[in-house]
Simulated assay, not measured.
Amino acid sequence: MDLEQTAIERLKMASDMSLRLYKQPLVITYSGGKDSDVLLHLAGKSGIPYEVLHSLTTADAPETVWHVRDTFRRMELAGVKCTIDTHRTPDGGNVIMWNLIPRKLMPPTRWMRYCCSELKEGGAKGRWIATGVRWAESAKRKSRGALEVLHSNKSKRLTLMNDNDASRMLMENCQLKGKRVVNPIIDWADTDIWEYADAEGISMNPMYACGWKRVGCIGCPLASKKERRKEFSQYPKYRDSYIRAFARMLAERTKRGLDGSWKTGEDVFHAWMEDGVLPGQMVLEGMEDI
C-alpha cells in the first residue's frame, strides 16, 4: 500500500472512531506549514467529515497568517468548518506571546517550551485530532506513533498502532480522558512531502518559495542560531516585540524579588540568542553577525 493510501486509511479509521466515541468529526490541526497542507489535502481526498483548527500563536510570520486565512477561506467556501483557536487568561484576557513571557518570568527555551503548551497544544479538548507530525522531523518524534492517546501525565500516555512496534495492538482498552491523536503522515520523508505536494498541486506557504526551510514562530528556540538570526533580520519588529516582553518580564521579576544578571530587555534577548553579547554591551544595527 502506498503512502497516500496508508495515510487515507489512517484518517478513515480515526474518523470512524471519532464519530463513534465523540459523536463529532475528526479535527485536522493546521499550522500553515507544508506538513499540515499535505494533511489537509489528504483529509479532503479521504472523503471523511472533518473540521480544521488553527492555534493562533501571535508569533507567526505575516506570510503564514495570510496563508492560513486564504486556506480557511477556501475550506469554508467548500463547507468545511474552520476555527482559529485563541487562548484566554483566567480573567478573560487573551494569552499572547508578549504577555506570556512576563507571566512565566523567563524566556521560552528548547527545554521549557511553555509557548507551545499554552499557545499551540491546548485546543480541541475532548476531540479526536489529526496532526502532521512526522518521524523525519526530529529524533524525539521517532517515539511517536500513528495513533496515540495523549495525557498531561506522561506515565499515562499510550502509543497506539506504532508502526515501529509490532507488539502493540491496533487499539488498547483505555479509560483515560486524554486527547486521541492520529498522525497519518508519520512515516513520510521530507522528499515524500514535497513530491506529493508537487504532484497534487497543493498550494503551499509562500515562505518556502523564498528559501525558508521551516515556518513557525519567529524566534523559536528550537530553530538553529542561523535560522533565528535570519528571521529577526527579516522581521525586526518581532525582535523589538521580544525585547519589550523581556523588559516587562524583568520588571515582574524585580517586583517579586527575583535576582538576576540581566538589566534590560536587550540583555535578555542577547542571552536568549546566545550571540555572545554581554550584558550592557551595545551592538550597532546591521552588525549583529560580526
Rank of each mutant, 00 (worst) to 15 (best):
L158R: 15
V277A: 02
A124M: 08
S224H: 07
W212A: 12
S31G: 14
C217M: 03
R69T: 11
L160T: 14
S224E: 12
D192S: 09
Q5P: 00
A251R: 10
P279T: 05
P108S: 04
P236E: 14
Q5C: 01
P236M: 14
K255Q: 13
L105G: 01
V149H: 12
D91Y: 11
N99C: 10
K226N: 10
Y114L: 02
C115R: 01
A139D: 13
S31F: 10
L284A: 11
L100R: 10
H41T: 04
E200C: 06
P184I: 07
T71E: 01
R244I: 00
A61N: 03
V68N: 06
L258D: 01
H41R: 08
L19E: 14
W212N: 08
A247I: 00
I28F: 05
T29D: 06
E148L: 08
E137K: 07
V268G: 08
S203P: 00
Q5S: 13
A247K: 06
S46T: 05
M1H: 12
S36L: 09
G265M: 04
F246R: 09
R253V: 00
R214Y: 11
S143H: 14
L250M: 01
L77A: 13
N162E: 12
G132D: 05
T89W: 15
K12F: 03
G79V: 06
C116P: 00
D60H: 02
K125W: 05
N173K: 13
A245Q: 11
K226R: 14
Y235N: 04
D259V: 03
P107F: 01
L19R: 13
W262G: 01
